[in-house]
Write a protein that binds this DNA or RNA. Structure first.
Lengths: 143, 143
DNA sequence: GATTATGTTTGGAATTATTCTAATTACAGC
DNA sequence: GCTGTAATTAGAATAATTCCAAACATAATC
């Protein structure tokens, strides 16, 4: 697995900006998230990371994911009663969770729609972030 | 703590509809959620429940919350890295999570806005539910 | 180029949230 | 008042995550 140059630069800049080092493990985990974008859990990332880096520990996976999330290179996503999942898609989007297949699909959101969502906040409230999760059946799971 | 008649009827109907019994514990927990609407965790519900019902167990609290959520009398809400929280507000609303104070505030949503959110789903996808969480600073937490 | 200081990783233990299990209790219908 | 089923209980088990101390890697300094 190889981290493409533009992402490598993104990663390096983000880490430098926050005064942290670019390590093999961080690079590896970032590459792996970019390569297969299926919103894996930490445990799943751990399993995949070990394929090419057998000595990596689960604690390191958690550390790296936290670092990547802190530096805004990935987002954390939560669904009800499920372990936290991670995704590298930085565009504004929601998540669709299919109850049948368990699949999670990104849903693009327009700036206009997000603006409208911001407008409904009570006076004096400012949101840095909105998390939107749909929950239903995807197009493969209809009768 | 006393469950008001209209809510008692709501509870009884919901339980009967799903073929489950109305028990002291379920009633107590429902009343407690209605009375202080601060989105408590299961653990917090447990602590409060014990004040008036010292022998109730944590497992029962989880069971009751699950039953109430199943019968649509309460909703489960998740925030990143935090335990699942519960709230009895059944109107269509989002949750605002203040990073400063940790407070969670309901934000009302119009049907029009929800319609628009439904319209952005890809063809063939149908959502039963949308979960929207804002994350920022509430009006008490600005400089 | 060796030394030091700091940041990172590692493995395992600890913690937290939640679910499971088996025994007991409560209740609805006969 | 029985009987069968549902619900509760306490505690054990599991799952997700965090913490910790030791080892390792790297950057900065001499």
């Amino acid at each position: 697995m190889r981290l493409e140059p533009q992402y490598k630069e993104l990663l390096n800049n983000a880490l430098e900006l926050s005064g942290q080092r670019a390590t093999k493990q961080r690079e590896h985990i970032y590459a792996l998230l970019l390569q297969k974008r299926n919103h894996p859990t930490a445990e799943e990332v751990y399993v995949r990371a070990k394929e090419d880096m057998p000595t990596i520990s689960l604690a390191t996976v958690y550390n790296c994911l936290e670092t990547l999330a802190e530096t805004k290179l990935i987002r954390q996503v939560n669904f009800e009663r499920e372990p936290t999942r991670y995704c590298p898609n930085l565009t504004k989007h929601a998540h669709f969770y299919c109850r049948e297949s368990g699949e999670i699909v990104d849903v693009d959101l327009s700036d206009e729609l997000l603006d409208e969502l911001m407008k409904v906040l009570p006076a004096g409230f400012t949101a840095k972030h909105i998390e939107i999760s749909y929950d239903g059946a995807c197009n493969d799971c209809h009768d």
